[in-house]
């Protein structure tokens, strides 16, 4: 199914080569804050402080963390939309740090993003067909209409939606459109940033199933970012827990969930309310208990 000619050219030895899909080595990212004093420059914000991990081909890798932990910055760097202050990032074994926009073309074809908010991630003035086909335009794809129809079908939407505008769809349907767009350039890596946290409960499971199916069928590598451990637990094989710009714990999802080692991970797991916990008598005070040092 993948476009053999391009993928073979761009990723030498893809398939058999054991090279990691993503490898992040000691990445830091500092932001300058605007000056508030004439005498001293403002202290920089350390969004990422020495982050390292690797995602082998075909793995479903989860990143869990709360707001401000640096996960969004990390995603932008993975996608080549931002540069680390130090350290290196390699996609399919090729270092992308320090590459110019033009040289990042292979990243644009190998790695695609799915965003959290299905409202703001689709251009309100474009038709669905054009939105999904946009990455194809960038690639100069010859058969755009056909490919768009194929993609819409793959995400469970009727092909006649191509002529409509995003505001005519519900949140779950928009997220399907967003996923179709991400799949358009036949990427091998999908980076999903909280893709279901803005969705209604009754459609969340549909979208999670869809993502799982597509990852299987197309043998994709998935990086799944969420604040919700239970979602990551269902989706991912391996998880990294981020806190304060660092990865504090990483391991197979089940293991991290069952035997969390780092105090922060323990706190995080204890604080998640679940139906099961609640019905066995866990109160709000109990959820909070772990929180206090």
């Amino acid at each position: 199914m993948p476009d053999q000619s391009t993928s073979a050219k761009l990723a030498p030895g893809a398939g058999t080569d054991p090279v990691d899909a993503i490898s992040v080595r000691d990445v830091t990212r500092d932001y300058r804050r605007p000056r508030t004093s004439l005498r001293h420059p403002s202290p920089p914000v350390h969004a990422l402080r020495g982050v390292s991990f690797a995602v082998p081909q075909g793995q479903r890798f989860g990143i869990v963390g709360e707001s401000g932990c640096g996960k969004s910055t990390l995603l932008r760097i993975l996608a080549g939309l931002d540069r680390p202050t130090s350290g290196s990032v390699a996609i399919d074994g090729r270092d992308i740090t320090g590459l110019r926009e033009r040289q990042l073309r292979f990243v644009r074809e190998r790695l695609q993003l799915v965003f959290q908010d299905p409202m703001s991630s689709l251009d309100p003035r474009m038709r669905v067909g054009d939105i999904v086909g946009e990455p194809l335009v960038a690639q100069g794809h010859p058969n755009r209409r056909e490919r768009v129809a194929e993609l819409l079908e793959a995400v469970g939407l009727p092909t006649d939606v191509a002529d409509r505008y995003p505001h005519q769809f519900s949140g779950g349907q928009r997220q399907r459109i967003s996923i179709a767009r991400a799949l358009a350039p036949r990427p091998k890596i999908i980076v999903a940033d909280e893709p279901v946290s803005a969705l209604d409960v009754s459609v969340r499971a549909q979208v999670l199933n869809l993502i799982a199916d597509l990852v299987d069928e197309l043998s994709l590598t998935l990086v799944f970012v969420s604040h919700d451990l239970s979602v990551v637990r269902h989706v991912c094989d391996r998880v990294a827990v981020m806190h304060d710009g660092q990865i504090v714990e990483t391991g197979p999802t089940e293991q991290v969930y069952e035997e969390p080692q780092h105090p922060y991970t323990r706190r995080l797991i204890a604080a998640v309310p679940t139906l099961g916990k609640a019905l066995s008598g866990v109160s709000a005070a109990d959820l909070n208990r772990e929180y206090r040092p």
Binding site: S170, G171, G172, Q173, D200, V201, S202, V203, R204, A205, Q206, L208, N209, A212, D213, S230, V231, R233, H234, L275, G276
Partner: peptide, 27 residues
């Protein structure tokens, strides 16, 4: 019943899929 099923991410069918409610919430 459907809502409880769909929000429980620890229960999957034999194909490893979550229980869902079909369609979407109307406006």
């Amino acid at each position: 019943q459907g809502l409880i099923g769909a929000s429980d991410l620890s229960v999957v069918d034999d194909r490893g899929r979550l229980i869902t409610i079909g369609g979407s919430v109307p406006p």
